[in-house]
Design a protein around this nucleic acid. Sequence first.
DNA 1: TCCAATGATTGTGT
DNA 2: ACACAATCATTGGA
Length: 343
Amino acid sequence: MDDQTRMMTGLTGLGGLAQGDVGDPDSVRKQQSLGQPQQDIGDILQQIMAITDESLDEAQARKHALNCHRMKPALFSVLCEIKEKTVLSIRGVQEEDPPDPQIMRLDNMLLAEGVSGPEKGGGSAAAAAAAAAAGGSPTDSSIEHSDYRAKLSQIRQIYHSELEKYEQACSEFTNHVMNLLREQSRTRPISPKEIERMVAIIHRKFSSIQMQLKQSTCEAVMILRSRFLDARRKRRNFNKQATEVLNEYFYSHLSNPYPSEEAKEELAKKCGITVSQVSNWFGNKRIRYKKNIGKFQEEANLYAVKTAVDAANVSAQASQANSPATPNSGGYPAPCYTPDGRL
DNA sequence: TCCAATGATTGTGT
DNA sequence: ACACAATCATTGGA
């Protein structure tokens, strides 16, 4: 108890420090320059240092006494301020963090795909878009639709449960650190601002983990989407009538099998396919025909006859004996029959 | 199950 | 932007 009273008397030397001066380093300096208070502070610091040499019980008692002293808050805030101006100001430069563009991008994508947004709606819209892009029949697309939605909701479920885990872990850890710092702030200078800063650092760390989760979720969605959007995976052969229409045009324009945009549109309408499908078909046909004319000979003859017959019918109706114009006068090699059916 | 046929995509050249 | 060539992925018949 002797020590304690000595300490108390030592601390009372700071009595001249008005409450309004708390935290003002200038006022502290003023006080220090007065001589007596400076010595008192030296005393206190000496005693604080001495705590480490004492037994645990003694130290505890002394710590308690220090904590209860009326000047403790003043000293505490001064120390905090000094610390703030030295160590923390260095780290404080990169404090102001703007929202990470990367994480914003991921958030937007997850929202657009219906993973992070409201339960239903977004996902089915994306599925509908995927189905429409794939150009499947209504029945097909509804099957694909539900399949897509099921898989998407699976991803969604995993994403949310993982996110919840992360958030829980983050808040648990934050609480733990905050409690620890609050506890420690009784014995060493830790300002609330510093605690705040520490929390921000923890949140940043956790958000980088969260970004990884978001990234892998995005990847999963992209893979899912590409599987549904890649038309090669759900290719349907055109129906017989459509192929016939396309072949008829191809062989009757063998000299120049390049339908104009209007012709393509008309063919597309006739065949019930898209213009780009018509373009694909002609692209494939030209190259395959050119590569192996022999293989297409029979088909070419067939359509040549067909065209000739049709033309003949038209001619007969018009009471004209002339055969139709021969279209293949260049470009792609003609079959062994002329389009009007003659050898 | 194999394999030719076929619709679609990708890369390149003009 | 379009055509070509190579290639992929699926279909459908043997």
